[in-house]
Simulated assay, not measured.
Amino acid sequence: MLSARQELIRIELETGTGAAIGMAVDPGGLRTGLRIWFADLDERHGPIAELRPYGLKGYRLTLGFGTYAGEVVRQIQSASEEDIGLARALVGSIDPGVDLDLDGQDVATWRILSGTSRIIATARNLPADADTAVTKVCKDVIVPLMAAMAELIGYDVIEDDETTGAEYEGAILMSTIRRRERNPRNRLLCIRLHGEKCACCGLEPRETYGDAGGIIEVHHLEALSTLSAPRRYDPAKDLAPLCPNCHRAVHTRRPHPFTLKELRKMMGLDGGEEATG
């Protein structure tokens, strides 16, 4: 069954992590499993996850590192506190019903300590339908864990624009904003925490557009360009899902975007209170 769901798992992972994914069926052991890794690092040089059936209605994912992953582990250990915070938030977004072993660490202080570090996630009492069970494990366990690894490694692309060649410090800040805006893990985490309902107007695009409705965007409630001093980034509190219209509208005011409350007031919605799920 795992072999038949490889493409679904690959699409979900590449969308959530921003990295190309490699995988192979592993017939070893009593029950067939699936090995998953970042394609540009291969199985030996980076994180590798092994998914296997567990019990009658469960799956277990074991995430560790390949034999020659020392360089990547060192890169992970030098990740910024902001990237570590987002990785922890992704791990923390896993359903509490999943048995999660972070090498004995608490999610609030979890970090990769060495190449022998392991994460073991066991999901039990899954739906009886095998396809539904695999899909649920993919979305609820594999994607957030691999996305956390991608964040720590640093899978981010900053696209060039007219600001990147400017000879002033603001160009660096603009790149940082673009990096955060385009980070696929931000969108993944925002949706996992808040759902796909616009926090301003309440629109749920998937209910209106079906499969074409995956258009919720990520909004930073406090624009990075307005910060007078660096502060700790809290993805659980600093992100909000917005439909494209509301997201465009809040940014029509510069350099300080409209707050969601201000925009809702302009729209005549509930006295300016944000939409709730």
Rank of each mutant, 00 (worst) to 15 (best):
Ala171Arg: 07
Leu113Asp: 14
Gln6Glu: 13
Arg74Trp: 12
Ala87Met: 02
Val218Met: 08
Phe65His: 04
Leu86Met: 15
Pro53Lys: 02
Leu189Ala: 09
Leu263Phe: 00
Gly195Thr: 07
Ala123Thr: 07
Asp101Tyr: 13
Glu14Ser: 03
Ala249Arg: 04
Tyr68His: 14
Arg231Phe: 02
Ala236Phe: 00
Ala148Phe: 06
Gly58Met: 12
Asp234Met: 05
Lys136Tyr: 02
Glu196Ile: 12
Gly214Thr: 07
Lys237Pro: 01
Gly28Trp: 00
Asp129Trp: 08
His247Met: 03
Glu273His: 13
Asp140Ser: 13
Gly64Ile: 06
Ser114Ile: 04
Leu239Gly: 05
Gly18Phe: 00
Asp238Val: 00
Leu2Trp: 10
Leu13Ile: 04
Glu43Gln: 11
Pro96Gln: 06
Pro127His: 09
Trp110Gln: 13
Gly66Val: 12
Asn186Glu: 08
Arg60Asp: 10
Thr176His: 15
Arg60Ala: 13
Glu262Ser: 02
Thr109Lys: 09
Gly33Phe: 04
Gly28Asn: 03
Ala212His: 02
Thr164Val: 15
His45Lys: 07
Glu82Thr: 12
Arg10Ile: 01
Thr62Cys: 10
Leu188Tyr: 08
Gly170Tyr: 14
Tyr168Lys: 13
Pro241Gly: 06
Thr122Gln: 14
Leu193Trp: 06
Ala121Cys: 11
Ile21Gly: 10
Gly66Asp: 14
Glu217Gln: 10
Cys138Met: 14
Arg253Ser: 01
Ala229Trp: 07
Leu193Pro: 06
Glu71Asp: 10
Arg178Met: 05
Ile158Asp: 13
Ala236Lys: 01
Ser228Val: 02
Lys139Cys: 15
Leu86Gly: 15
Arg44Asp: 15
Ala49Ile: 06
Ala69Glu: 04
Asp101Arg: 00
Asp156Cys: 12
Asp129Val: 08
Thr259Val: 01
Val98Glu: 06
Leu2Thr: 06
Glu43Tyr: 14
Leu41Tyr: 14
Ile76Val: 07
Pro255His: 00
Cys246Ser: 00
Gly85Ile: 02
Leu173Val: 06
Ala199Thr: 10
Met266Lys: 05
Ala87Ser: 11
Thr116Glu: 14
Ala89Phe: 12
Arg192Ala: 09
Asp238Leu: 05
Asp83Thr: 09
Thr252Leu: 05
Met23Gln: 09
Gly28Ala: 11
Asn125Ala: 15
Leu51Ser: 04
Asp26Gln: 08
Glu169Met: 09
Thr252Tyr: 02
Arg179Ile: 12
Val141Tyr: 13
Ser78Trp: 11
Ile191Trp: 00
Ala49Ser: 13
Leu145Gln: 04
Gly29Val: 00
His220Cys: 03
Gln6Gly: 01
Arg192Ser: 09
Gly210His: 05
Arg206Ala: 08
Arg206Phe: 10
Ile177Met: 06
His251Asn: 01
Thr164Phe: 10
Glu217Pro: 00
Gly85Ala: 12
Tyr54Val: 04
Asn186Val: 06
Ser93Pro: 03
Thr62Gln: 14
Met23Cys: 03
Tyr209Gln: 06
Asp42Ile: 14
Ile215Asp: 15
Thr132Ala: 10
Ala150Tyr: 01
Gly165Lys: 11
